[in-house]
Design a protein around this nucleic acid. Structure first.
Lengths: 341, 341
DNA sequence: TTTATATGTGCAAACGTTTGTACGAGCTAT
DNA sequence: ATAGCTCGTACAAACGTTTGCACATATAAA
């Protein structure tokens, strides 16, 4: 049986309310009493029951994290631990706890969010992704429950606080970079139109093509689901088609590494015959041969700021919605070269 | 203002206790009443306050996860998301929530654990690692609080439920494999004597050497901290020393990949001049050139079983301590070869 | 008709806190 | 000496549940 505030009160010869005020370091309690009570707390090994506390103060000092549907590959790449590290860092600074969803399907996750919110398990929520039509986002908006999003919300962006990179801009830059190297047959690999960030990137890509007067060609867009369903065969067929791309913009480093390994099998040299640039800039990129040119999107900072904004909203529910843009920059390494006709 | 059980009771014209019993599907309530109450719950959008519930039933349906001190690299490699995926899967099956520590230093983490335990935020705890002298483990043992460990506890193992690979055995196998290929100068890279799993692996390694009549040589043991502090210089110096190893047993795939990249810079061919085998078998290994021979330790299963055991203990506190061993196996690929004098 | 039993529901206490209000004691100023 | 303070503390209600017990009603047995 755990020791409660009453036990401490009895031991110190005061009332429970006094003990509570000592814990809160309330100024109206005499130093003498405080000292005595604290001594008893230490002696008895008292620790407040946070549940009981939460119940009355109506706050849990906990933030909920909604992970993407684990059917997606999202958890495979290092995005997740890194963003979590950022969130944890900030949460920890403000003494907030972290609660995770564990659902597999979208529906389960939704149920868990409802349970977090209505069950008063958390004070606010961070959505780790942004999808085009998200039940959860609508729900949180309806409930006016504090939340922030990593990635641009597809709808209602002006009513939501979120943190994102400028995906359009950076992807235009990346594509420009390839165009400037002389490439004209540039493929975009790993698109998923459910995810807003790929929509944005695709737009940046198209924009660059347009500006350079290069026709947009659907066959150069490889969707994520296609990578999964057709696997190695699909992609090698694509790479060795009769008019193969000379450059690839790839959604993430791991996919890029996979592609490099397929290219090698096909005896297509990177970067001499095909240039590759990808996103995320995981530490591994510089250990690849060739070293991978990649876009550093500062995942840690995305998480950190998302938590920062959320805590701000929790503390001041009237805070206005805002957008934070985390700078992304391309790290040029060795996987791209001037086109070699 | 959220809708409470009282609101539902009023709307349905019954007492709060009746509503509570309807929620619990108590048999002594008439079907008719149940139907009526449920209708009101739906109409009002009632959802129970889990905090209040937890307070009285003294259980939170939540498991706490203690992450390693984030100063360590533990979060960098895919161990973490994968083990979390395993834990989540099981937690979710049993409708348990997941709560995470966010501390940076050992001391902060310890404080958070105390707060989880005494603050009644969680019903049990999973330790994601096993260190030689762990304050947290001692504390949980003292408090008789339900917990399980991933990795063999260094002390009190017979009193603790844990899940682990047979690190001694598998590492002996791995080393034997190299010895059978003719290697005699085999280095062990990435030892950290604070972590029980590396202690075990080192033992398996030594055992294999002993059995083969190869003298154990301290200079062939490279500690993790040494990798960090001396970085690239240290390791390249080691690889090009006057009597370099011909084979490496490496603590994890990422370190192995790093080593491969250094070897290449030094013009040491893998596997012709140096063989490498590592641990974890991340998906990337087969995309490396050469493909990396690696030990699959089934991280997902480690997490899943740890959660499974924990929930078992939570449901039946008298459950006896047990050890679960998850099979590990070496996946032979292309990074090792017969020694080439 | 009375007693016993089963069935369905309500009352009130409990879980461990926080906090508004009240109250008593010791001051100072009149 | 009394009124008006300040200061420190206690009382009790509240947070939203669950649950043991009591009670009322209906039914069955005697």
């Amino acid at each position: 049986m755990a020791v409660t505030i009453k036990d401490v009160a009895k031991a110190a010869g005061v009332s429970p309310s006094t003990v509570s005020r000592v814990i809160g370091d309330h100024p109206h309690i005499s130093e003498e009493t405080k000292k005595r009570v604290r001594k008893e707390m230490a002696k008895l090994g008292y620790h407040p029951n946070l549940q009981a506390r939460s119940l009355v103060v109506r706050s849990t000092e906990t933030i909920g994290i909604v992970m993407p549907n684990s059917a997606t590959q999202a958890l495979q790449n290092p995005f997740f631990p890194e963003v979590l590290r950022g969130i944890s860092m900030k949460a920890h600074e403000d003494k907030f706890g972290v609660y995770l969803t564990t659902g597999i399907t979208d529906d389960e996750i939704f149920q868990q969010v409802v349970s977090m919110v209505q069950g008063r398990r958390v004070d606010g929520i961070i959505l780790l992704y942004s999808k085009t039509d998200d039940q959860i986002m609508n729900y949180l908006l309806d409930e006016k429950f504090p939340f922030t999003v990593i990635g641009r919300p597809y709808k209602n962006a002006e009513r939501i606080t979120y943190v994102d990179n400028d995906n359009i801009y950076i992807t235009k830059q990346v594509t420009d970079y390839l165009i400037n190297l002389g490439h004209r047959k540039i493929a975009f690999i790993g698109v998923n139109l459910d995810h807003v960030f790929t929509i944005d990137r695709l737009e940046g890509y198209k924009h660059a093509l347009l500006e350079a007067g290069i026709a947009y060609d659907e066959t150069y867009i490889i969707h994520e689901e296609c990578l999964k369903s057709e696997g190695k065969e699909g992609i090698t067929k694509f790479l060795s088609s009769h008019e193969p791309p000379t450059a690839l913009v790839v959604a993430d480093d791991f996919t890029a590494i996979e592609l490099m390994s397929y290219s090698e099998e096909l005896n297509i040299k990177v970067p001499e015959e095909i240039s590759i640039v990808s996103f995320n800039d995981v530490p591994l990129t510089e250990h690849m041969r060739p070293q991978l040119t990649s876009v550093n999107i500062d995942i840690f900072q995305l998480g950190f700021e998302a938590a920062n904004c959320l805590i701000e909203i929790i503390k001041n529910p009237k805070a206005l919605p805002k957008r934070i843009t985390i700078p992304a920059r391309m790290i040029e390494r060795k996987s791209c070269s001037v086109i070699n006709k």
